[in-house]
Simulated assay, not measured.
Amino acid sequence: MYLSATSNVDLTDTPWSMGIYDQSGRLVGKSCKSGRTCSAQVTLGSGAAPWYSAAIGLQAPLANESTPAGQLLRTASQNAPLRDIQARSAAVQPSRVLWGVDSCKPLTGDAAAAGDLYPQVTRMYGPPDFWGRYLTTTPNCPGISAAEVAAAAAHHLGILPIYNEYYCSAVAGYDVGVSYAEGATSAAAGLGIPRGTVLMIDIEPPGEWCSGGVDATFIEGWYDGVSGAGYSPGYYGDGTGSSTFGQAWCTAVADRAEVATGSYLWSFEPSLLGRYTRATAPSYDPNQVACAGRMVAWQYVLSSGADPDVDSDEALSKLPLWYP
């Protein structure tokens, strides 16, 4: 990943230099003495991306390059932290796109993940960065098991927790949202999911199977119940601005702006046709709500009983997944 910082003045004819720092205070790459921009390249591992900031300060005196020793000292000076810091930017966390799946069925039945869906998905599609699974057992899907949690830990796999223990048309009313949040946060605590992790509520579109549509008060109830327990509220729904969910979302955000800034959205639209592997996954492009909201995940293919029977997803690394 390439990082870039920009100053509002040209540093070329000044005593100042600019550098990019990671969250541990280490200078990333070399400090920059000329121009308005400074860039650095970093390699990100699995898990959440670190935070970075830029600073302007004095570079250590540069050595004479006429000798090999001088060249080494000059490189060391450029890699040394800046002194006498004059300005520092706010810390930012760059996002990268994670590839994953979600499933009704367990990802595996054993802690080594030697059988069932996990090795099948890895072999046919590629190794997932995360896996969406249900917190509790529903009429159609078993809740996540201890074996799945152990397998996720062994394979450094993020878990996207989903709550769906209710009739899909019953997604209206503040008290209903709070009640569902109580069930989800209780299940999350029982599984040992740390606070701060996102908990997604599954909001299906109204239609033949789900006759009722979500309303703004339900969204606010889920937000209050989940955030009040220390977790991060998330919403899986049709992210299209004109959809039932999209309209309810914007009504809730207009009433309470903190719902937008304190929640995460996962859209199942647009839903694409065909089979995609990790290597051929589409560019991240979920439908967006027509107001403020952090759209950080996209279910771009619905399984519909395919083999392997998983939905395909992408998510931004800022989504606070559970890493057992």
Rank of each mutant, 00 (worst) to 15 (best):
A181P: 06
I162Y: 08
A60F: 00
V97D: 06
S169Y: 05
A188Q: 03
P128N: 08
L157S: 10
R88Y: 00
Q120Y: 12
P68E: 07
D84F: 01
G100T: 11
G132H: 00
Y125V: 13
T122F: 02
G143Y: 07
A181G: 14
P194D: 10
S145N: 10
D175L: 11
F130C: 01
L107I: 15
L191E: 09
G126A: 07
R88A: 12
L117F: 01
T136Q: 12
Q71W: 00
R123Q: 15
I85K: 09
Y166V: 03
E65S: 13
Q71F: 00
Y174C: 08
S89Y: 01
K105L: 15
V149H: 01
V176C: 04
A154E: 05
L135G: 04
D175W: 05
P119V: 06
Y166G: 10
R96W: 11
P94N: 10
A187H: 07
A80Q: 06
S169R: 08
G100Y: 09
I85F: 02
Y167Q: 15
T67Y: 01
L62S: 00
A111L: 12
E65F: 01
A87Y: 09
K105A: 15
S145I: 03
T136L: 13
R88M: 11
P139N: 06
S66C: 10
A114I: 10
A90R: 04
Y174A: 06
A184H: 01
D129E: 08
E65V: 14
V101P: 12
Y125D: 15
I144W: 06
A189I: 11
E148F: 07
A69K: 09
D129W: 04
L117I: 09
V121W: 02
F130S: 01
F130I: 04
V97A: 08
A151D: 04
I162A: 10
P106W: 06
Q93R: 14
L157F: 03
A187D: 06
A60W: 00
L191S: 09
E182V: 03
A170M: 09
R123V: 09
S66P: 03
